[in-house]
Amino acid sequence: MTSSDLVERLRVFLMDGVVDEGVVLDAATPLIARNLIDSLSVVVILNFIHAELGVEIPLDELTEDNLQTLSTISDLVLRLKTAQSPS
């Protein structure tokens, strides 16, 4: 999965039920700085990534740097996916 595919899947997921209705996201929208996600939505995103993408995010990776935009979340997922893949 490429980074842009991943950003798109996350974007659709977040816009469909996580951020407020009507908020439009792109890869660089500042999610935390603009208070678009809160502590509980982080749990929801985490479970989406685990269930849909098969990637487990250790909870100590939930930093503002890693979660600030869809692009940084996607980087995090791809980095962990590489680290967690059996090869």
Binding site: D16, G17, V19, D20, I37, D38, S41, V44, F48
Partner: peptide, 9 residues
């Protein structure tokens, strides 16, 4: 923030 139920989640 929890308007919908995402498939199975």
């Amino acid at each position: 923030i929890f308007r919908h139920t995402w498939d199975g989640l």
